[in-house]
Simulated scan of single mutants.
Amino acid sequence: MTFSSILHTARGERSVIKKVSYKDQVYQYLKHAIIKGELQTGVIYSEQQFADKLEVSRTPVREAVIRLTNEGMLEVFSNRGWGVKPVLPEDLQKILQARIAIEGYSLRYLVRHRDEAAFQKVIREMQACQSDSESFAQDESHHFEYMKADTDFHCLMVSCTDNAYLKRINDQMRTKIEQATYNSLHMSRRNAKACLEHHQILQEILHGDENSAMRAFMQHMQETAMALGTTLLE
């Protein structure tokens, strides 16, 4: 199997992706494999192993591993290889706390500016994510696609702030968030319920009720924490 066919199988796409470097393609392939649990904790992998599998040199694999290590997804074992870094309960709790701080502020900001053209565009994009979520929520075979729409919904809120610091921190957490979201939704089979929670958040944004929007958001985060087997507060 060629590198392109492996990548497209992983991403569920048929068309050949052009003008994308091997480094970026390998990064996307490994990231998706981590999120889906295809690469498991406790197993040591090597650069050569994936260079052979994807029919590329070791350089793009090494660069992808470095990038994922910096994102906290992988850990390197000296002279042995690398493995998937386990997501511990305390990690999940801290990620949720960071999300509440960043997304909570972003949600309030969005509600306050909802009538402005730029923010109306963000709301329409969130509605599109919600529509995608609803179409994927009923079919477990589209679990990965649902997770991506779910994560995009939250990231759009942060993007509306036009705050480079918030967006940078959110981007750094995104892969971890996707990994945690994929696992929590899959294990608890709560796609449909999470979708309804997003719908409620959207309705409160459209109504312009900042406090009600925050209550809906916090209820969603509380349900997420329960699905992840952790709590929001220590």
Rank of each mutant, 00 (worst) to 15 (best):
M1Y: 07
L7G: 02
R11I: 07
R11S: 13
E13M: 07
R14E: 08
S15G: 06
S15R: 14
V16P: 02
Q25E: 14
Y27I: 00
K31G: 07
H32A: 14
A33S: 14
I34L: 06
K36Y: 02
G37R: 03
G37M: 02
T41L: 00
I44D: 02
Q48C: 06
E55R: 09
V56R: 08
S57R: 08
S57Q: 11
R58W: 00
R58S: 13
V61R: 02
R62V: 06
E63S: 08
R67K: 14
L68P: 01
T69C: 02
L74K: 01
V76M: 11
G83H: 01
K85Y: 11
V87C: 08
L88Y: 14
P89G: 11
L92Q: 08
L92A: 13
L96D: 00
Q97G: 09
Q97M: 07
A98H: 01
R99H: 04
A101S: 11
Y105R: 07
Y105T: 09
S106Y: 04
S106V: 04
R108N: 11
Y109P: 02
V111W: 02
V111L: 04
D115H: 13
E116S: 12
Q120E: 10
R124P: 00
R124S: 11
E125M: 10
M126T: 12
C129N: 12
Q130L: 15
S131V: 10
S133V: 05
F136R: 00
F136P: 01
Q138H: 10
Q138V: 11
E145R: 09
M147L: 01
A149I: 05
D150A: 07
D152F: 01
F153Q: 01
M157H: 06
C160S: 15
T161A: 06
N163E: 10
A164D: 12
Y165M: 09
L166M: 15
K167S: 07
Q172E: 11
Q172Y: 09
M173R: 07
R174D: 07
K176N: 11
I177P: 00
T181P: 00
T181C: 08
H186A: 12
M187E: 14
R189G: 15
R189H: 15
A194P: 01
C195R: 12
H199R: 15
Q200H: 14
I201D: 03
L202P: 07
E204Y: 09
H207D: 14
D209V: 00
A213E: 00
A216F: 01
A216R: 02
Q219S: 06
H220E: 06
T224F: 15
M226Y: 10
M226N: 13
L233T: 15
